[in-house]
Amino acid sequence: MPADEGGDVVLGLDLDDPCDDVIDFAFEAARLRGARLHVVSAWHDPNFLSVGPGEVALAKGPLRAREWDGFQEAVLRIWRDKYPGVEVARTVVEGRAPAPLLAAATGAALVVVGRRRHLEPHVGPRTGPVAHRAIHHAACPVAVVPHD
């Protein structure tokens, strides 16, 4: 289906832990649909206790936003090469991920998010806050891709 008829495939990309399985699933879904892939990532100010030398978090203000944007672009570079026919739109915002992801999902064909495979003792598999919000609030199908 042409991209202008079926809507984008939207990928919620966690820049703290970009997962190849989730990214590959989203690119392949966009390729199969002939759709544009809209990649949405959110970043927030780091906890000063968690910052190591050379991390993006050491940049200040607008420079930090540019660093996160460049990091998202670098993560996607190999996938753009692997899927040259897939048009990619990118969004990197400061704050929490669910709101911009759901905004991008308006009119989308599919939303793709990841879920870590770890199990909670006595509870079983659980979704994180982004996957949970997407499942319950996106107005389109949602693919939750498990990963390690």
Rank of each mutant, 00 (worst) to 15 (best):
V112E: 05
E55L: 02
P62H: 08
E73Q: 13
V56F: 06
V88P: 09
L101K: 07
A26N: 08
A29P: 07
V56A: 14
A29V: 07
G61C: 05
H38R: 15
L13T: 07
R126A: 07
V130I: 10
N47F: 00
A57W: 11
A97L: 06
A131S: 15
H132I: 00
I135K: 01
Y83T: 00
P62I: 01
R36Q: 12
A105M: 05
V56R: 14
P84V: 05
D16N: 14
E94Q: 15
L101E: 09
R90W: 00
C140A: 04
H137V: 00
A103E: 15
A105Q: 07
L76H: 01
F71E: 14
L11P: 10
H38L: 12
V39H: 03
V75Y: 01
E73N: 09
G114D: 03
R126Q: 12
L63W: 10
P18Q: 08
L13G: 01
V142A: 07
A35F: 04
G34I: 08
A59Y: 15
V40T: 05
G61K: 13
R31H: 10
L58H: 11
V92D: 13
A57S: 13
P125L: 00
R90T: 14
A134C: 15
G124S: 06
V130C: 06
S41E: 05
F48H: 10
H137F: 07
H122M: 02
R117H: 04
D148W: 03
W79K: 03
P53G: 02
P46G: 00
V144T: 12
R116N: 11
V142F: 02
F71A: 15
G52C: 00
C19V: 11
G70A: 10
E94D: 08
A109G: 14
H136Q: 10
F27V: 05
A109M: 00
D17R: 13
E67T: 00
L49D: 11
P18N: 10
I23R: 01
A138S: 11
A74H: 02
L102V: 09
E73S: 14
